[in-house]
């Protein structure tokens, strides 16, 4: 699991890479929250394009970041979702809390 964070004053982009389970979620949560709390940006964008596996820990990760960011009036965007991850996020009703965007299909 790897995480890359690109930060500007108005926006933080969090790029997740690899497998998100309960074990890996602890690390990415720590890194993400440190960056978010340092600048409290208006928009936090979480990119799942390179996530190869996710269980409900990934949903918990988005819900947790939503609570944090919503707490100071910011918003969360989730992008790069495969059909599978998109339907898992909807299982949690996350589309009511954050903007969900599917991955662009290759060759389209």
């Amino acid at each position: 699991m790897a995480i890359k964070i690109i930060s500007s004053s108005a926006r933080i982009s969090i790029y997740l890479n690899g497998e998100i389970d309960h074990h890996n979620a602890a690390v990415i949560r720590y890194e993400a929250d440190e960056a978010i709390q340092a600048s409290m940006p208006k928009t936090v964008r979480i990119d799942f394009s390179n996530v190869s596996f996710m269980d409900s820990s990934g949903i918990g990760f988005v819900m947790g970041r939503f609570r944090l960011v919503n707490g100071y009036g910011g918003k969360v965007e989730v992008v790069g979702l495969s059909e599978r991850l998109y339907s898992m996020m909807k299982l949690a009703g996350l589309e009511k809390l954050v903007k969900l965007e599917k991955k662009q299909e290759k060759g389209k």
């Binding site: 409900s56 918990g60 947790g64 299982l91 949690a92």
Partner: peptide, 21 residues
Amino acid sequence: EPLYTTLGGERAGLGFAVMES
């Protein structure tokens, strides 16, 4: 039950819902 969790915070309470789906 979906979204029910005894832990709160980072756990979504969706473990069994995901297994069932």
